[in-house]
Amino acid sequence: MQRLTVLGLLLACAASLCSAAVVIENGMPILWAHTASQMTDLPIENGVLNPDPWHYLHRMSLYRLMIAATDPFMGCMGTNATDSPFWGLPLQLGWMLTSGVNYFVSALPVLSAAQNGFMGPGLQVQMQMPAGVEDLCTNYADCSARFPDAMSKWDAFFQGLKAANESPLPDAEKRDSLLGLYWTAQMASTYASAVCNARQSHYPSTEVSFAQSWLNSAEYVSAAHFQSNMAKSVLFMTPLPSRILQEGDSAPDIPDLSADENHTLSIFAWMQKANNLLGGTLVRLWGRAMCSMNTREKGKEMLEQLLLDSSFVTSSFLSIVTGMATSC
């Protein structure tokens, strides 16, 4: 927590600057038991919810409250209490506990959820902001004006969530559609965080490179409509690096990181390098290949093999993606 306090402002927009591969404690996100279970547990001024997003427990509490508020609408996601795609967000926050957080994938969905009535009738939210910070928004109107694309996409997700609850479509179709809306909003939030790219200069080039490769990997996850529930998120986040990368770190030969961590770093770097060498073609091919529910299911399986199975040959990934794209 001390390191988070010191670096909180600096890393407000950091997409993936890492802390620890441990993402759960007692089966829940880190410090979940200490978070607020109701709105009145957070600061309220003149009837307006006024959380401090630089306070780890406040931000984790916002996730807990948003998950609780949207769970009644998440029936198509599965029968488990942790099947909502929102579970990936508090797990990611826990992973970043000692090094930084992504403001845009925290504040924007919460503000949109409140605006769309999920957090209670007429609830207004005003995020606290440190003095001197001018590139981040603090309430729904402010964020909509500064980042209209991201906010409109979060609004579309929450409106779609309400509509899906009344839809007669099969759960599989509703789930796929909602996950598409969810990841479109997530990626828009990520793109919005580019306003803070200058802060990356405070980090080693190897860590910045990892952050960029992490963002590149999100393009694949998004296109496949990955269901970032508790189980899947833990599976994919556990092999992430357990410390901030330093100059000289070169996967897969970083001695104080595990084989799984080295493998994950190598795969992320390979995916980004391959895409850059191909002028962005690999991401475009992948997006084209994810053209149906069937191919998206295959895509999820392939990503799991690529990231979690060290015996999976990367050249196979290229050939399979090319074949899938041409068949769409």
Rank of each mutant, 00 (worst) to 15 (best):
S99C: 13
N139L: 02
L161K: 15
P148S: 00
V105D: 09
A131M: 06
K153S: 02
S112K: 03
D135C: 15
G122S: 06
Q124T: 08
L89I: 13
G75R: 02
A107I: 09
P90H: 02
Q115K: 09
D171H: 15
A69N: 06
S99M: 13
N165Q: 15
Q115M: 07
N139W: 09
M66W: 08
F118A: 01
A172Y: 02
Q92P: 14
C76R: 03
P121I: 06
F157R: 09
F157Q: 14
A164N: 12
P85C: 00
C143I: 05
D142I: 05
F86K: 05
K162S: 09
N165I: 14
I67V: 11
L65M: 11
N80P: 15
M66D: 05
N102V: 10
M127F: 09
G122E: 04
L97I: 10
Q92Y: 15
G78K: 01
Y63S: 08
M119Y: 07
M119L: 07
N102D: 13
P90D: 00
L62V: 04
T184N: 15
D155G: 12
K174L: 05
T79I: 06
E134L: 13
L179P: 08
P121L: 03
M60A: 12
A131D: 12
Q115C: 09
W154R: 00
D176C: 10
L111Y: 11
G117R: 04
G117A: 02
Y140S: 05
G117W: 08
M74L: 11
A81Q: 11
